[in-house]
Amino acid sequence: MGAVTAAVVLGQSGQRAQARDALTALWGRIGVAGDAFHRCVLAHYLADLQDTVEAELHWDERALAAATDLSDERAQQYDSSFKVRGFLPSLHLNLADVHRRLGNTGLARDQLAAAGESVHQLPDDSYGEMIRSGIDSVSQALDAGSTQRLAAHP
């Protein structure tokens, strides 16, 4: 997880290509059958570093698939407060937004509904508020027929 964190910091500092390369190399070591926690986290961050919406969709789908293989017990080995169901609103929100940007309105609404169904699992803190706000923003963009990237990416 230290290598993942270092790569994420690279991406946040504007070094997207280096961060993507570092995370892709880690994915290559872990693989599609590797540890579900690592796959979920890697895919989630890799999605945000892609140059195309289609590639972002691929990684967002991988993140959600890995979450279905993940147990609370495994997630809590990293952080005792983690619960898999707390990951789901964000993962579904990301899929809703990428489907919206691809013009897949029905799939976007399905994913947005899934995010909304699990939003009660979120804590009442800044993270929970960010996801709730993201759900509202994507919903408004869907209603407006927008396929543009939102200023505040969920």
Rank of each mutant, 00 (worst) to 15 (best):
L107K: 13
S139Q: 14
G2V: 12
D21I: 04
G116R: 14
D136L: 12
V138T: 04
A75H: 10
R39C: 01
S133H: 12
R101W: 06
S80M: 02
T24G: 00
D51N: 15
L26H: 11
L42H: 05
Q18W: 04
M130P: 03
A63S: 05
H92E: 09
A75T: 12
L91G: 03
A152D: 13
V138R: 00
A66S: 11
G106I: 02
A63D: 04
G34Y: 10
L122N: 12
G86I: 01
D60L: 03
L42G: 05
G2I: 11
A22D: 13
A66E: 08
M130L: 07
H99S: 04
V8Q: 06
V53M: 02
V98P: 12
L91W: 01
A66N: 07
V98A: 08
G11Q: 01
A3G: 04
E117G: 10
A66F: 06
S80V: 07
A152Q: 13
L112C: 08
L102E: 05
L102D: 05
R74T: 15
R85I: 10
L42E: 08
L42D: 00
T24M: 02
T24Y: 00
V41S: 05
T5R: 09
L107Q: 12
T147Y: 02
R20K: 09
V8C: 01
G145W: 03
I131V: 15
E117Y: 06
E129Y: 11
S118K: 03
S13P: 00
L64Y: 08
F82I: 13
E56R: 15
L10A: 10
H99F: 06
A19G: 03
Q111A: 14
A36V: 08
L88N: 00
R100H: 07
A67V: 02
D48A: 06
E54V: 15
E129A: 14
D60Q: 14
R29I: 07
T105G: 10
E54N: 14
D51R: 13
L64M: 09
Q50V: 03
R29V: 12
S81Q: 15
H120G: 12
G103M: 07
L70S: 06
D51P: 15
E56G: 10
A36P: 13
F82Y: 15
H120F: 12
G2L: 12
A17I: 03
T5F: 07
Q111S: 14
